[in-house]
Simulated assay, not measured.
Amino acid sequence: MIREKLVNEYRHLVNASYPYINSLLNNCYIKIIDGYLNPVSPAYYYLGIYYAGRNGKEITLYKYELKNIAKTFGMIDVVFINAKRIIRDPASTLKQENPRLWLELYWISSKVTTNLD
């Protein structure tokens, strides 16, 4: 629950600072990921942005801005992950280990956006 609030605050700050980037993040799934160097060391946190393959290049263009905002929340780094690759990977056990995350990634990767400009 605290992680969800932190992600919502992150989105709010991105929206206040860079509205265009926030519109790109609407097609992404953002998750706080924790890592450990060894079992006794304290955890470090970074932000995982799962994107669909079609908007990956556009989001990674703004990685400097997204990393700077994440650093204000105490995150080490921002990692960009292609959701379609994870879903289609036959060796992935994500569907069995974390079915909710798998469904979220499936939903993100199957969204269809049309540019009728």
Rank of each mutant, 00 (worst) to 15 (best):
R3E: 12
R3Q: 11
N8F: 06
E9K: 07
Y10R: 08
V14P: 00
I21R: 01
N22H: 12
N22I: 01
L24Y: 05
L25I: 05
L25C: 06
N26W: 02
N27I: 01
K31F: 06
I32P: 02
I33S: 09
D34I: 00
G35A: 07
Y36H: 14
Y36P: 00
N38W: 06
N38L: 15
N38Q: 13
A43L: 11
Y44Q: 10
Y44L: 04
Y45L: 06
Y46W: 15
L47T: 06
G48W: 09
G48S: 13
I49E: 04
Y51P: 01
A52G: 05
G53D: 05
G53H: 14
G53V: 08
G53E: 08
R54I: 12
K57G: 11
E58Y: 01
E58Q: 13
E58V: 08
E58F: 03
E58S: 05
T60P: 00
T60R: 13
T60Q: 15
L61F: 08
L61C: 01
Y64G: 12
E65H: 15
E65C: 10
L66R: 11
K67H: 07
K67Y: 05
K67P: 00
T72V: 13
F73A: 14
G74R: 11
G74T: 03
G74Q: 10
M75Y: 07
D77T: 06
V78M: 13
V78W: 10
F80S: 06
F80P: 04
F80G: 03
I81G: 00
I81Q: 01
I81L: 09
K84H: 15
K84I: 04
I86C: 09
I86Q: 02
I86S: 02
I87M: 14
I87V: 08
P90L: 00
P90D: 00
A91R: 11
S92W: 07
S92Y: 04
Q96V: 08
Q96Y: 09
E97D: 10
N98K: 15
R100A: 14
L101T: 10
W102N: 02
L103W: 11
L103N: 07
L105K: 14
Y106C: 05
I108L: 05
S109F: 00
K111Y: 04
T113P: 04
T113E: 10
T114N: 13
N115Y: 12
L116D: 08
L116R: 15
D117G: 09
